[in-house]
Write a protein that binds this DNA or RNA. Structure first.
Lengths: 146, 146
DNA sequence: GTATTCACGACCAATTCAGTCGACATTGTA
DNA sequence: TACAATGTCGACTGAATTGGTCGTGAATAC
């Protein structure tokens, strides 16, 4: 049931972009260093996020990556679904194959859990994540805000 | 985020045992057939469930598998944790490594989702799953109750 | 003693995960 | 115009996990 590093890293990177919203492009190397993500792997994740319409990239000196839309308009649910594919704990919750309930016997439990999870993830915007991190920094020792 | 077939199959098998509670041992081959699980794979799952104290097995002719305790006393949470290991969506939710929050930045969202999921899974007993399936059979075509 | 059933461990193929690397495209600046 | 800085893309890879199979052996009812 673990989120893969794809989802984890991808969201970390997006939080980083959100925290530098309005400051021009952020370079891959900076993100990688601050968020402890292997740079060449981050490359793939940014490509995926770009294809999904969350990130815009600029080449050349002074280039880098930016949010393609305001942080308020990006929610954790859509972000994770773009990175991980479906978050459903059981195949049958997405496919909705007929007859599956009869054999599986647990889908009614998981359906509720899944719905609830999606509701909660949809309610959290990237802006909220970034703000939460800023809040956290005010009281903690560590600082990733350069 | 998918539950592996281990968890899925394992719970299916347990529901099968619950539905035959009090009728003596149920054979692996029967379970496998009814629940559409490869028999040799089910072997491993039953071994795991036995080691975890959920199942008792009897060898020899007329042997098979039984619940090691009443179906009311087995909840879905413990069953799945025995089969899958931790259900946490992020490592840091179990380990609780210090400093993880600073880099990860999403654990506060997932902690709530995880707690909620565990609460819900803990509230569902194997008896409830079996009863739900019986209920379902009354209104559906398919019948697995032999 | 034989047929039936579970017990256990070795093995295996396919897939996914988590990357690395190298060649190439774009663009700002000297 | 050359070049350095940056992103883009695809091929490749090693390790782990998943989802099994198979064969041998042990227990036990008859």
């Amino acid at each position: 049931m673990l989120l893969s590093t794809k989802g984890d890293y991808g969201v970390r990177a997006m939080i980083d972009l959100a925290k530098h919203e309005g400051e021009g492009p952020v370079q891959r190397a900076e993100i990688a260093k601050r968020r402890q993500i292997p740079e060449s792997y981050l490359d793939h994740l940014l490509a995926q996020l770009r294809r999904a319409g969350f990130v815009r990239s600029v080449r050349g000196p002074g280039g880098g990556h930016l949010l393609a839309k305001p942080a308020e308009e990006i929610c954790l649910l859509h972000l994770l679904e773009a990175l991980e594919g479906s978050l459903a704990p059981l195949q049958c919750l997405d496919n909705h194959e007929p007859g599956a309930e009869a054999i599986c016997g647990q889908e009614w439990v998981w359906q509720e859990i899944y719905d609830d999870m999606r509701r909660k993830l949809a309610a959290v915007s990237l802006a909220a994540l970034a703000e939460h991190e800023r809040e956290h920094e005010r009281t903690a020792v560590v600082n990733y805000s350069i």
